[in-house]
Amino acid sequence: MLPEIFLQPFMQRAFLAALVAGFLLPFVGCFIVPKKLSLLGDSSSHFVLASLALGAFFGVSGVLAAYVAVVVGVFAALRLVRGLGLSGDQVLAILLSFSAAMASLAISRGARVSLGSVLFGSLLAVQVEDIVAGLLVAVFAFVFVVRNFGRVLLYTVSEELARIRGVNVSLYEVLFALVTGLAVAVSVRIVGVLLVTALIVVPVMAVGLLVSSMRRAILFSVVFGEASLLAGVVLSYLLDIAPGAATVFILIAVFAVSLLLSRSGLRV
């Protein structure tokens, strides 16, 4: 007999979404953080917020628009970083502010958005379409990285080094925007706009203190991400708190433990 938590349809959807987001966000984080684009999660999740608010204002379905908007937004951010020669965090801070302002404008003019659920995530908000979309993105991203591991590594280290090793940097930029954007759009439902960044940044930061190779960083980041998000969903159900908040507390605890282990000289 399964415990009640596994019998509720919305919890089954939440667990599946947690499995997908728990893989996708730390996985893309392993490439976002070394590229010094840590704010990309924040910016792209605010693109989702802005597109949902604008969709509500104009009376059109916001879900597909959110997916498109966030991919276009991430791609624009990457092109601006490269084209303007500004640092990633500077460009992303501007785009984050712009998205937040657009969302604020739409909401102040009457757009009806469930702000609590969009900002902090909600188990009830998870839809089957989000899970399927996330699963497709996860499979694509994983297979692509496995088959092109060397090129992806060079692209992450330096676009200049990648270019002179024959990597099609423009194509990789589009794919990076596509996977990151869709990963964020899918995950916003469960962890919320404000907490997406935590799942992108904290696992790879925690793991980065302890490992010396990218393969291990990816493996352990995903394991930390999955474990934290699933535990966060369970705590959310049991304690009736937002799943994003529960997950972030667990992530930060994991990070603190990693910090202590790294100070003690542990390396794997």
């Binding site: 953080v33 591991f149 590594l153 980065g208």
Partner: peptide, 15 residues
């Protein structure tokens, strides 16, 4: 290479 846990072997294989 800042903030990137990449090993010497991984980088040379990629190169």
């Amino acid at each position: 290479f800042e903030r990137m846990p990449i090993s010497v072997g991984e980088f040379l294989h990629a190169s």
